[in-house]
Amino acid sequence: MSVEARERRQPWILLSPALTAVGLLLFVPLMFIVVYSFWLRTATGADQAGFYFDNWNEALTDPFYRDILLSTLRIAAITTIACAVMGYPAAYFIARARSNKALLLLLLMLPFWISYIIRTMSWINILGVSGAVNWLLLNLGIVDEPVQMLYNEPTVILGLVHFLLPFMVLNVYVALEGIDISLEDAACSLGSTRWQAFREVTLPLSLPGLAAGGLLCFVLSAGTYITPLVLGGPTDAMFANLVFEAIITQLNWPLGSALSLMLLAVLGALVLIYNHYLGMAQLMKGLG
C-alpha cells in the first residue's frame, strides 16, 4: 500500500470507534424513532406496524402542539437572554481577572458535580413556603405569611438559568480569552472611553462566543422536561413534557416519536442557521 493511501485511511481508522459509537447509539435509534413515527397505537396500547401519516398529521396540524411548541421556544428564548445578560459580565470578570482565574473557573464548574435534578429540587428549599427566603422574610417581619414563589413560569425559567448559566459563561469566556487585551488599550489611546472600547472592540469580537453560548442554552432549555415538572405549575409544561406524556403516560410511542422528531427538526434548523452564519468551530471551542 502506498504512503498516500495509508495516510488517507489513517483518519478513518482513528475515527472508526467514534463513528461506530455515534452510528449505533445515535443514528440507529434515530432511525427506529423515524420508523415508529409512522406506526399506530392500538386501543390496548400495543403498536401497529405500518406506514401511516396519522401521527404526523396530528402533530403538524393540531394547534395544541403548535401552541406548546411556541411557548417552549419563548421560554427558551427568555432563558437564553437571561443567561447572556447574567453570563457575560461573569465571563468578562473571569477573563480579565489577574489572579485566581483557575479558582474562578473551578467555581464555575462546581455545579456540574451535583446532579441536575438535585440542583433543580434545591429551589424548593430556597423558595418554598418553608424555604430559606420565606424564613428570612418572616423573621425580618417583611411579610406576615409565607409568599408563594414556586410552581410558576418564572421559577421554571429560574431553574433553567441556574442549570444553563455555566454553559453561557464558558463560551463567552473562551471568546474573551482569545481577544488581545491590548486592542482595548489601543482603542483608548486613540481617544475612546473604556465603555466605547468595550462596545466597539471587545463586544463585537466576543459575539461568536455569545452566539455559541446562546445556541447551547436555547437548545438545552427547549429540550428540557425535568425543570417544568419539578418547578412548574399546572400549565407550565414544555414540548418535551408532551413527548414524555405521549410515550410514558399514554403509551403512544408512535405519536411520541413524531413529536420528538418535530422538536428535533426545529432545534436542528436552528443549529443549521447558526452553522451557516457562524460555523461550528466556535461551539466546539466552548464545549472543549
Binding site: 397505537r41 386501543a43 390496548t44 396500547g45 395544541f64 406548546i68 399546572p234 400549565t235 409544561a237 413534557n241 408532551l242 406524556e245 405521549a246 403516560t249 399514554q250 403512544n252
Partner: peptide
C-alpha cells in the same frame, strides 16, 4: 377504565396544560 384509556389520558393531558 381501560376502554376509555386512550381518549381520556390524552384529553386529560391537554386539560392539564391549560386547554
Amino acid at each position: 377504565w381501560n376502554g376509555h384509556e386512550a381518549d381520556w389520558s390524552k384529553t386529560f393531558g391537554r386539560i392539564q396544560k391549560g386547554y
